[in-house]
């Protein structure tokens, strides 16, 4: 399932072979027709929708655009999104590194099951990922009575948003690290230990530096998904304006209220995030390939 996010390793390795291929055989007319069809398809399905976001956001000029972003509910949504993403990404770095480390450096029973479980959030609908937390922690849920008795709010509050986001974005970091760590094996760690390094020293001075680019790549993808997650978060949010609305949810509310320009203004920030992510991704791939 690693192809889902395209691992840094395989992408950077194959990149170099690009230029060696040359079109041979078919006439230039055929070649340019095929290129045109591909480019037109991508323009219609990918580029035009992206351009539309910015065009609609600035439909009434820069002033209204800025005002839409400075609106208190919009600012609250931005703050909440940043908070949820920061917590979720931090948690998934810890979980992801731990899981990848366990899988790549140790042999234990049930390892293939664990690998499948890590992939699971990719293939399950985000709506279902959100639903399970409602069933667990909702008012009528598994722990509902206990949580209510102790006045703990998880669903329709920040903890629920974080839980749903963590579940959905869990595979990104782990998936990026597992193949690389497996490839690197355990020799360097064994050398460090035999030279007297402690387990923690080995981890922080050998294992972690060896995977830094892949880790950064995983964090990048994880963050993009965390900030943009909609389905799972939508189910657990409760949609309280200014309180439990993340940016994607705020986009939905504004759109459904026919405040199209304001909706696209908030959406443009998310589109900008996507563009920055794509540029950083290319830069990271280049960096990793050159090392």
């Amino acid at each position: 399932m690693s192809v889902i996010i395209g691992t840094l390793r395989s992408r950077s390795v194959t990149k170099s072979s690009h230029s060696s291929h040359n079109a041979r055989g078919e006439p230039a007319v055929v070649r340019w027709t095929i290129i045109s069809v591909a480019v037109i398809f991508l323009t219609i399905f990918l580029v035009i929708p992206l351009v539309t976001v910015f065009q609609q956001a600035f439909a009434r000029g820069v002033g209204p655009y800025v005002n839409a972003l400075l609106e208190p509910d919009a600012l609250a949504a931005v703050r909440l999104t940043l908070l949820v993403a920061a917590i979720s990404v931090a948690l998934n770095v810890v979980f992801g590194v731990t899981a990848a480390w366990a899988i790549a450096k140790f042999e234990f029973r049930g390892k293939s099951v664990l690998i499948t479980l890590i992939d699971l959030p990719f293939s399950v609908s985000p709506v279902i990922s959100g639903l399970v937390f409602v069933l667990l922690f909702g008012a009528q849920g598994f722990f509902g009575a206990y949580l209510q008795a102790h006045d703990i709010q998880i669903i329709f509050a920040l903890p629920g948003l974080v839980l749903a986001t963590v579940l959905v974005t869990f595979p990104f970091v782990a998936r990026e690290l597992i193949p690389l760590m497996q490839e690197q094996g355990t020799q360097e760690e064994e050398a460090a230990i035999s030279l007297g390094a402690s387990g923690l020293q080995t981890f922080f001075r050998v294992t972690l530096p060896n995977v830094k680019w892949a880790l950064l790549y995983g964090v990048l993808l994880c963050n993009a998904r965390a900030m943009g997650e909609f389905g799972a978060v939508s189910v657990v949010s409760g949609h309280v304006r200014g309180e439990t609305n993340t940016m994607p949810l705020h986009v939905e509310i504004l759109y459904n209220e026919y405040k199209f320009m304001a909706s696209f203004a908030v959406a443009s920030l998310l589109a900008l995030l996507a563009l920055v992510t794509l540029i950083a991704k290319v830069a990271l791939e280049k960096r990793a390939a050159s090392e």
Binding site: L50, A224, G231, P248, V251, A267
Partner: peptide, 10 residues
């Protein structure tokens, strides 16, 4: 990279 809701409204 593009959040699904953004793609949806666009």
């Amino acid at each position: 990279a593009l959040p699904t809701a953004v793609a949806g409204i666009a």
